[in-house]
Design a protein around this nucleic acid. Sequence first.
DNA 1: AGCTTTCGGGTACGATGTACGCAAGCACCG
DNA 2: CGGTGCTTGCGTACATCGTACCCGAAAGCT
Lengths: 248, 248
Amino acid sequence: MTDRTPARSELPSEARLWRPSSRSTDSARGRPPGYSRAQIAEAAIKIADAEGVEALSMRKVATALGTGAMSLYRYVKNKEALCQLMVDHMVGQAVLPERTGEWRTDLRALAVAQRMTQLAHPWLAGIAAGRPTMGPNTLRMLEHGMSILDGLGLSLAEMLEIYSLISSWVNGFVREELTEEAVRERSGLSVQEWRQNIAPYIENLMSSGDYPYFTRIVREGIDHDFDMRFERGLDRIIAGIAATLPSR
Amino acid sequence: MTDRTPARSELPSEARLWRPSSRSTDSARGRPPGYSRAQIAEAAIKIADAEGVEALSMRKVATALGTGAMSLYRYVKNKEALCQLMVDHMVGQAVLPERTGEWRTDLRALAVAQRMTQLAHPWLAGIAAGRPTMGPNTLRMLEHGMSILDGLGLSLAEMLEIYSLISSWVNGFVREELTEEAVRERSGLSVQEWRQNIAPYIENLMSSGDYPYFTRIVREGIDHDFDMRFERGLDRIIAGIAATLPSR
DNA sequence: AGCTTTCGGGTACGATGTACGCAAGCACCG
DNA sequence: CGGTGCTTGCGTACATCGTACCCGAAAGCT
């Protein structure tokens, strides 16, 4: 009859989500969990890789693990939290490139690594948008980036600014890249067929005379070589960073 | 009994979607449509603005128009197409800044305008991702950007590269910005409460010793002034473009 | 052994996107 | 003017989704 306060004060979701164990308390009492959050994240990732994010559902993840849908809710608060788990798990897989000590080289390598991860798992970018995911692995990435920029005479705030300048651009770039790729896959057609399909529409636009640059782009057959565009974009951004660096 | 081919060959979805009229054929026969695609787009946009994208549903848009859910499918193939419509309608609203003739100024203005549009309609970025949306208004934006870069001694391909460099960065930047904002709204707490809420988790990370830069960032109280970061990022990117410009 | 605490997962509900089909409205041909 | 054939309007129906609720099973602790 004593009015005991609850055994543990409620932890905010952030803290709960990233606890090393999935157990809801620290005590070892009660039935032990049958799965780990890493297992769950992996199962979800496998599904997203194979069938796309839009096919990812709690039920599918559960049956992939050989359990019922509702069991997952012992490990994550909701689907949103599952997604955060997936993101951080992914970021954790990323192999951080070795540092050479030359900041340009190292920034390049970091950007390339970030792009590669996102290309290998096209759903990543879409899922990471809209959620902050301050998981341990995401932070590890930040630490790596910051350490590259250390010693260039920048303030901490400036270092952070530059790190996020690069990250933002990589994210934006890859998004464009994936979009281009997605539209072709979604249509289920080959590139050839797809081109053929929209040809009349393009013709129509061009002959309207309202889009002279677009017309030239199409006519001169400028195609999107994303690899090259990425390198050249990186060139420009790094040049910009160098230009605004305090003189040494 | 004659094996007539269908009156009109099936148009690819792109061409159908952007036809000026919503009618499914050019003929004036049959019952005239009761709505316009612009009307539908506006209704959908109003809902997304008021309740967020996740609350956007075909049924809601329909009842906002005073009609049944399935009627919408006479105007758009599916929800995906409705979203494309919304995006292009939005882009069409954007007021393109006047050109001054100084490319740096004009590029800046374009970037600022793009950011403002996305901030005013937070759902825009999320919806535009994953779909190419080559609507008339999107192309108008492209034309504007290209015209700014014309006459700097760049090839068409280079101009396009630079245009998309800026766009990509703006997209990436705004995404980060909106994410930060969204997490606070979603939690339903004030900034103060939210900070308090994750404090123990942050403490925990910092005391682990694994994240020295993160720790300094928190301790020095570096906050994200997005307006300033945007300006400074723009500085760096434009500096980078200038640095790789052919000497004049 | 019994008590306490935790996990497992079935059932059920409300919401969503949309396939299907039929009724209603309008233009044109006879 | 009345039919004919096209078009749009939209109710019904279904599969699928996230997840609230609940209770039985399983595992320490005393």
